[in-house]
């Protein structure tokens, strides 16, 4: 039922297609990229896009198209794992903050408010500066920067589910608080969390690119969309493809996940049910 409605929706279907394509690209990038992303063709530096090099070459003569395909991997891995960290941490803390009433709940929300007052980007930069650049720290940084947002969502959903009579019914059967949270609250807020995660994966990918652009993320020579755009920026007037090709990668990935997330929200949100075909 829900899957059919999801696929019938043009936006979500297109998003789903795009995301699937991007995931396949990431998995198959060693097979489908025409060149090794690190291989230098010094004679052919700054080649324009052509049949030989789809995306042209950079200042070392590396194939931009191959590098962009390989960059998909880092973007997706960082996007997925950072969002997973934020979602898991945020959901656990949000469930506690929403289900319990007392000092712990107040403390969590107070900290959340403090962290929410920083823009995600600034928070991520602070973490990377504190732990040093590199992919692992970028994942951690983005994950931690996302956590307060997931706490907010998980808490709000938990509060509204906890008001439902079936929670009281479960308590009347003798179910423990942990059991109620695990069996009733979590399954009922999972939809919200999943939809929000999908939307935030796009943001995580954008943040990873931004951090790499600033030199805080993936370190050269490993190709990542962010550091490719940065390298290309120096030669933008001479060879715009250096930045435009990885830029297109970011564009399609972000738009793909956003469309997928929007579509899922429309399908999973009962308030909109029936109004969408």
């Amino acid at each position: 039922m829900e899957i059919r409605r999801f696929l019938k929706n043009k936006v979500s279907f297109f998003g789903f297609l795009l995301v699937t394509l991007i995931i396949i690209t990431a998995i198959l990038s060693p097979l489908i990229s025409p060149y090794d992303p690190l291989e230098q063709h010094m004679v052919k530096r700054f080649s324009k896009p052509s049949a030989e090099f789809f995306g042209g070459t950079d200042r070392y003569g590396r194939d931009i198209f191959s590098r962009t395909l390989w960059g998909t991997r880092i973007s997706l891995v960082v996007g997925f794992s950072a969002t997973a960290i934020g979602a898991i941490l945020g959901t656990v803390l949000g469930l506690i903050a929403g289900y319990t009433k007392g000092h712990l709940s107040k403390g969590i929300m107070w900290l959340t408010d403090v962290f929410m007052s920083f823009p995600t980007m600034v928070l991520a930069i602070i973490v990377v500066v504190a732990f040093g650049p590199g992919n692992q720290n970028v994942v951690l940084a983005i994950g931690l920067a996302f956590t307060p947002r997931f706490i907010r969502l998980a808490r709000a959903s938990t509060l509204s589910v906890s008001e439902q009579v079936f929670i009281e019914a479960s308590r009347a059967t003798g179910q423990s608080s942990v059991g109620i949270i695990g069996k009733h609250v979590l399954p009922n807020i999972a939809g919200d969390i999943i939809v929000m995660s999908t939307l935030w994966i796009a943001t995580a990918i954008r943040l990873e690119a931004s951090l790499s652009f600033l030199g805080l993320g993936t370190q050269p020579p490993t190709p990542s969309w962010g550091n490719m755009i940065r390298e290309g920026m120096l030669y933008f007037m001479r060879a715009p493809w250096l930045s435009l090709v990885p830029g297109a990668g970011i564009f399609f990935t972000v738009i793909g996940f956003n469309m997928l997330g929007d579509g899922m929200r429309d399908v999973l949100d009962p308030k909109l049910r029936g109004r969408l075909t």
Partner: peptide, 20 residues
């Protein structure tokens, strides 16, 4: 004591977990 005393609720809609 929960095994001795049980409850039936007024609202048959919100008293059943929709995911179960």
């Amino acid at each position: 004591l929960r095994r001795d005393i049980q409850i039936i609720f007024q609202d048959p809609y919100s008293s059943l977990d929709p995911r179960m």
